[in-house]
Amino acid sequence: MTYTFDFAFVAQVGNLALDVDIQAQGQMLLLIGPNGSGKSSLLRTLLGLVPITSGHINVQGRCLADAATGLGLVTEQRRLGYVPQSYGLFPHLTVEQQLNFAVQCRSAERSVQRASVRNALEQWDLISLSRRYPRELSGGQRQRVALARALIGEPLALLLDEPLAAQDVQSKEQVREALHDHLLHITLPVIMVTHDPKDAKQWPEWVAVMDNGQLRSPRPVADVLADSSARSARSWGFLQEFVAQTR
């Protein structure tokens, strides 16, 4: 399964233009760029926290926002799975309750809810952890719960904001491997924000570089480097270092 990500993003103060078309033909898009380049702003825009002033957002044929018609669905209607940096697990809910909460938001029927929670617990190998609270889980286990919870409502795409940033150095590699394995089995377009070059080594296929609130359509990092116009960009130094570390 491959997805195509067609992106154009221009953010200026008080003026946010975005053209996003995510079609069911691709795997994964890495969003890279130095700190403060607007990566998180882009995610927040996709999630509907920031209105766009021109352009549109289409995900798998569904229009989430269109500046021309004034359409802008609120976050809860966008059907985008979202996993923030620290995973955003609710500290007062057990693993099973986290999944229950997510599934209750989408489906009204009790029997359907129970079945999907049971399936998710099995599929993500969480049965033995179902009664644990987030503070009783390891980093890798938390990640699994966060992914299971984001996907249980059958979203149109999955957004990951630096999913490894909160991991300590010892477990980071292990959790990265696990994330890679999990994402291989996800049949959804995935957009992952990162500033860690090792992520690009793991998922080299598509990279979109953010620079100063602007983003060009995704392509391999090598292509971006070969483009002489990129040399003048503020992110040039970041890119060179990024590529050096992926080798």
């Binding site: 999630l47 926290l49 609120v74 976050t75 809860e76 209607q77 966008r78 059907r79 985008l80 799975g81 979202y82 996993v83 923030p84 940096q85 620290s86 955003g88 609710f90 500290p91 007062h92 909460f101 997510a102 209750q104 938001c105 989408r106 919870r149 984001a150 409502g153 979203p155």
Partner: peptide, 24 residues
Amino acid sequence: ELLLVARSMGAKSLRIFWQIALPL
């Protein structure tokens, strides 16, 4: 972020208030 995650799942304001904000 917790509230944003809840909203991204489709949770309405009242559900977030009752099930997330109040118990927390």
